[in-house]
Every structure is written in C-alpha cells, then in structure tokens.
C-alpha cells in the first residue's frame, strides 16, 4: 500500500512545528513559514500588540523585524544545507528603508545565495505589500558546523 505524497501544506506545517514552534523566541514572536524552496524562505510576522515599538503609531519595533530577518536568513541557510546543522550568525546588517504601516503583519523573503564549506551568505527583504517595496533589508553571514548536533529535531522536514 502506498501513501499519498506529502502535500506542500503538510510539509509547511511540519517545518513550522520544528522551526517556528520548536525555537522559543520564534514561537514568542509568532513567526510562521509561509513558503519555501531550496535555499529560499518566506516568513510572516503577524501583527501583535506586544511587538509595538511606538504606542502612538502602532508600528512593529525594528528589533522584532531584526529578529525575524535573523531567523529567516538562518532558515534559508538550513534550506540550502538541507539540514538543521547548527549554524551561528557571524554578522547581520539591517537597513531600515521606510517606516512600516501600523497594525499590520510584516512578511519577508530570504535566500542563501552562497554556501561554502564553513560559511553561508544570506540576504533578504522585509515587506508589507510587495517584495519590491521593502521596509527593511538584511545581509547576514553564518558559520556552519556540519558535524554538530542539529538545533531542532525533525531533519526530514527539510526539502
């Protein structure tokens, strides 16, 4: 008897269970995978009162966007590696391009654009309406420890 191949929605759910819910701070932020490809990740940071940086405007604080882009660049590296091998952020640069719209989710797309044996290079944009109209962009460098213990379980959740 053969089982039906796993749908993308099912796979997304498993990736969210491992990476979004399995990592305490990602869970606290409410971060969710929206989509993925090899080396590319799309995330959503839903609007949450607790993340507001300016109570008068209701815009999400830049720190929460930094945390999302850090996690999402890391996820893009996992998706390029095809495993949850431990990685460590070496550096991360965030440019805040414009003020976000109040009381709205922030989305992001990140990609690992170069993978070497020890180092991964990733970049991405955070946006609200469209990827070509970003509120922030990020560039990150990650050190890869290929032999280390995976940071979350469920290796098979990665494509």
């Amino acid at each position: 008897m053969s089982e039906a191949p796993e749908s993308k929605a099912e796979r997304l759910e498993r990736m969210n269970a491992a990476f979004a819910l399995g990592v305490p701070h990602n869970r606290a932020l409410g971060l969710r995978f929206r989509d993925f490809e090899r080396g590319v990740a799309w995330f959503e940071l839903p609007f949450d009162e607790r993340l507001v940086g300016n109570p008068n405007t209701g815009v999400i604080h830049g720190g929460a966007i930094t945390a999302m882009l850090d996690a999402a660049c890391g996820a893009a590296v996992f998706l390029a590696l095809g495993s949850f091998s431990p990685i460590a952020t070496l550096d991360l640069r965030i440019d805040y391009l414009k003020t976000g719209a109040p009381r709205r989710a922030v989305l992001c797309r990140t990609e690992c654009y170069k993978l070497t044996r020890h180092i991964a290079f990733a970049r991405g944009v955070a946006y609200q309406d469209a990827e070509d109209d970003p509120v922030a962009c990020a560039t990150g460098t990650f050190a890869i420890q290929r032999k280390g213990k995976p940071i979350v379980g469920a290796e098979e959740t990665l494509p």
């Binding site: 990592v23 305490p24 701070h25 990602n26 830049g62 720190g63 882009l69 995976p150």
Partner: peptide, 24 residues
C-alpha cells in the same frame, strides 16, 4: 527569560534579541 532562546539545544539566546538590546 526562556522565550529569548534561539537555539534550544545549546541553549543560546536568539540573535535577534541581542540585536534588539544593542539597538535599544
């Protein structure tokens, strides 16, 4: 606090929280 963790295996703080501390 526990929700600041980014790597539950080590455990280690999430890089985003350290970035937010520095910026703030």
């Amino acid at each position: 606090s526990d929700p600041l963790i980014g790597n539950p295996v080590l455990p280690a703080l999430h890089g985003g929280t350290i970035g937010a501390l520095l910026e703030s």
